[in-house]
Structure formats: structure tokens, C-alpha cells
């Protein structure tokens, strides 16, 4: 009974989901090792030595210097074969969602997506846009899974020193990483923000989006969006909160002009405090809101900002 945690870095920086995944491995119980691949992974592996893993494996080899699902899944599969892990887990980031099912396919392993908890040897996960929690049994020798970051508080260093060892990298010439085209933003990431201000169809236009962004900047918050706003091209896709976008659970979620479709609510209903500002008092968002304000956000947001400034 041992687990392999697949850590994740991008351009040399460890991504936050790594620490939630380590917490999930600890919650599952048993020993665990960590695998971190890519350029800069030697230093990254070193920084993961104090989290209670047996061994932290890394590779900076050319074959895995940049992420492709093909090479990373092959490399992980080789390590699983060699060490005999019974579980492999990674954050449910876009990378985890891309490579873990491929790893499952290579290993002939059953997979559980978006694990939020453990029930003995079984796994808990949401289905149907979070309207059901399923208990899943995996009946293959190895289980692979992605872990929902918001369900596990990030692990902190627990002392000790894991061994650090190089993993044997396996490449795949048929897939080539070309480049990142990342969105430039000075705001916090949706996944890491303690406050999120989110825009829905009710913000209408670029002017409305600017108001939402101004409120976010005043609060040091991340900006989120409903699918309608992304479809309109008002905000980029990676800010989409919902069933098929980002799942978030900040301390405070302020929904501006968001009606509260099932798909959106699935992405934010685990937030600690939800505020909804919507001029339609029948909007379903009020069913999940802790505090609802029936108002046009275009009037309410400037007033909200005045009051917050007065606090400071």
C-alpha cells in the first residue's frame, strides 16, 4: 500500500496543487513518494524533502524537460512498474486531467477523477455537476486519480528529510511542446485567492467587466467569470468558474450579475461565504448565497467600493 504523488511545476515553479495532493496522500494513509518532472525539477525536488515522502524522484532529462502527456505518462508508468505503487494521485489541474487518464490507460488502471475524500478503500467524488457524491470502488491493482484541490488543505512541511533520486525519463517523439501563451495578470490565481469577484451575464459589457475588476483590485481578489461572459469574449476562458472550468472555494465569493446556473454553482458552492448581487430576485444564485442583495450591480458595486474604502 503505497502512493505516488505527481507534483507539478511550470517554468520551474511548483504549482500550489502539489501541496493539496500531498495532503490527500496523507489523508489516504500509507507511505508515499513524490515524482516531479521538468526543467528545474532537481531544485523543486529538494524543496519537497520535508513533507514526509519516502523518496522524491525528479528528472530534468531532455525527454521530459517540457511537459507532454505522452512523455510524462510513460515516465510515471515506468516508475509505478518499478516501485509497485498501488495508487497514483495528482491535482485536478489541466495537467492532471490531461496526463492521469493516459497513465491509467498505460497501466490498465481504474481511475477516479476529482477525489474529495476516502471511505476505507473506496473513493468519494462529485458527479452530475456536484449534485451527487459518488462512492467509487477501483478493482484494478493500481488506482490512479486526480484530486480536487479545494477538498484538501495544503500540506505544510513536517520536517524530516526524504531521499532525493533521479527517475529514468522516457520520451515520446510524436508529441512536441511548442510554447506557452499565458494570460498576463497581476491578480492572484483563482485557485490561490482568498477572495474572488466573479462576473456573470448581468455585467453586460466591457465597462461592466472593468467595474468587477476594480472591485477585485480593491479587495486584492481574483476575477472569475461565468460561462456566458467567457462565451461573449469579455474575459478569458481560464477564468471560467464552474463544472467544466475552475472549481474554487475561497473565503469570500462575490457573484456579480450571475444568475446561478447549475454549471456555475458546481464550481463555487463550497466557498465559505457567498455574496450574490443580482437585480433579478428570482435568480437561483440566491439559493446558495449567504448574503443576497437584489440590486443592479452597476449601482451596487461603486457603492460597495466606497464603503470598503471607508473601512480602511
Amino acid at each position: 500500500m503505497s502512493t505516488l504523488v505527481i507534483a507539478e511545476s511550470r517554468q520551474g515553479d511548483l504549482r500550489a496543487a502539489t501541496y493539496n495532493t500531498i495532503a490527500a496522500a496523507k489523508a489516504k494513509g500509507g507511505d508515499f513518494d513524490i515524482l516531479l518532472l521538468g526543467s528545474g525539477s532537481a531544485a523543486g525536488a529538494d524543496s519537497l524533502k520535508e513533507f514526509g515522502a519516502g523518496t522524491v524522484y525528479y528528472s530534468e532529462a531532455d525527454a521530459v524537460a517540457e511537459y507532454t502527456a505522452e512523455s510524462y505518462a510513460k515516465t510515471a508508468a515506468a516508475l509505478v512498474g518499478e516501485k509497485g505503487y498501488t495508487a497514483v494521485m495528482m491535482g485536478a489541474t489541466t495537467t492532471g486531467k490531461d496526463m492521469i487518464p493516459r497513465l491509467g490507460g498505460l497501466l490498465g488502471a481504474g481511475m477516479v477523477s476529482d477525489v474529495i475524500g476516502f471511505d476505507g478503500a473506496n473513493y468519494l467524488r462529485p458527479m452530475f455537476a456536484g449534485n451527487a457524491i459518488a462512492t467509487i470502488e477501483v478493482n484494478t491493482p493500481v488506482a490512479v486519480m486526480t484530486v480536487r484541490e479545494t477538498a484538501f488543505d495544503a500540506a505544510a512541511p513536517s520536517g524530516g528529510a526524504s531521499a532525493v533520486a533521479e527517475a529514468a525519463a522516457v520520451g515520446d517523439d510524436r508529441a512536441k511542446f511548442i510554447e506557452y501563451r499565458l494570460t498576463e495578470s497581476s491578480r492572484p490565481d483563482l485557485g490561490a485567492a482568498s477572495i474572488i469577484v466573479s462576473a456573470g451575464r448581468g455585467v453586460k459589457d466591457a465597462e461592466g467587466v472593468k467595474q468587477v475588476e476594480a472591485l477585485a483590485d480593491l479587495l486584492g481578489a481574483a476575477v472569475g467569470a461565468s460561462r456566458a461572459v467567457v462565451d461573449e469574449g469579455l474575459l478569458p476562458n481560464d477564468l471560467q468558474v464552474g463544472q467544466t472550468g475552475k472549481i474554487v472555494a475561497p473565503d469570500l465569493y462575490i457573484a456579480c450579475g450571475i444568475s446561478g446556473a447549475i454549471q456555475h454553482v458546481a464550481g463555487m458552492k463550497d466557498s465559505k461565504v457567498i455574496v450574490a448581487i443580482n437585480k433579478d430576485e428570482e435568480a437561483p444564485i440566491f439559493e446558495v448565497a449567504d448574503y443576497g442583495l437584489v440590486a443592479d450591480f452597476a449601482k451596487a458595486v461603486p457603492e460597495f467600493m466606497e464603503k470598503v474604502k471607508a473601512l480602511k
Binding site: T94, F177, Y180, L182, N237, D238
Partner: peptide, 10 residues
């Protein structure tokens, strides 16, 4: 579509 934007793959 990836977290934080886009990447390009061949």
C-alpha cells in the same frame, strides 16, 4: 486551454 492561458502542442 490550460490553467493560466494556452499552450501549443504539435
Amino acid at each position: 486551454e490550460i490553467d493560466g492561458g494556452l499552450d501549443v502542442k504539435e
